[in-house]
Amino acid sequence: MASVSRVRRGDAAFYALVGASAIAFVAEICLVFLRAPVEARMGIVQKIFYFHVPSWYGMYIGAAACFVGSFGYLVRDTDGRDAFARAGAETAVVFGAMGLITGPLWGVKAWGTFWTWDPRLTTALLSFLIYVAYLVLRSFAGDGGGERRFAAALGILGAAILPIIHYSVQLWGGQHPMVVTGSGGGLKHPDMKLAFAGGFLCFTLLAALMLIARTRLEIVASRLRRAEEDAIDLGLDTRDET
């Protein structure tokens, strides 16, 4: 009974988070498209900024979750920690894909080219590819203890590149804007700041939803795999019977 009530409380919290995210996204759309002013030099395309930067922030959240889950798994191997790491990597790939596609759409207007091998862009692409590699490994290399530990090591190494992405513009220059990290901030209108903050809130909620949903699904998959193994131990082969 206690576990049923815990599940119901968890469901209620999840649905509350879904509701909060929906409200936040509607508010954010209004802020970006109806309230935030058009930027003087770049025009309307600057509004990509309000979900391009938060999408990379969502990628950082996923990568951080992957790091925490992976590190936790190496300390003590539980299905929950492995599931959290896997969910984190997937979240990182989803948000990284958003960032990698929306960035060039902004860049073609700002720089006149979709892609340039700028330090920020290059390190961000490398980081994205590390998490793609993590997911490919998890999809094709089985789900044994060895594979999980190897993936956990990759999840920890993947996080090492995050500070390099963050400080790449300061360290190596390049064309990438420094509006957010510039001294005092480069958003010159309060509604720009509001829309930007709203973007961060929306993508934080979205990342949390994705992490929770995928972690739960992976835990269920692990439980099912153990049940299948138990069935095989009892002489019941779940694969061969028709």
Partner: peptide
């Protein structure tokens, strides 16, 4: 300047490129 500050436009925004198409494309991608 473009890389370090964003400023609100004064008066009507004059669009010389299809920034709206790029914006909608980026939004659709999400």
């Amino acid at each position: 300047d473009r890389a370090t500050t964003f400023q609100a436009v004064e008066g009507n925004a004059g669009e010389h490129y299809s920034g709206a198409t790029l914006l909608v494309s980026a939004y659709a991608v999400v």
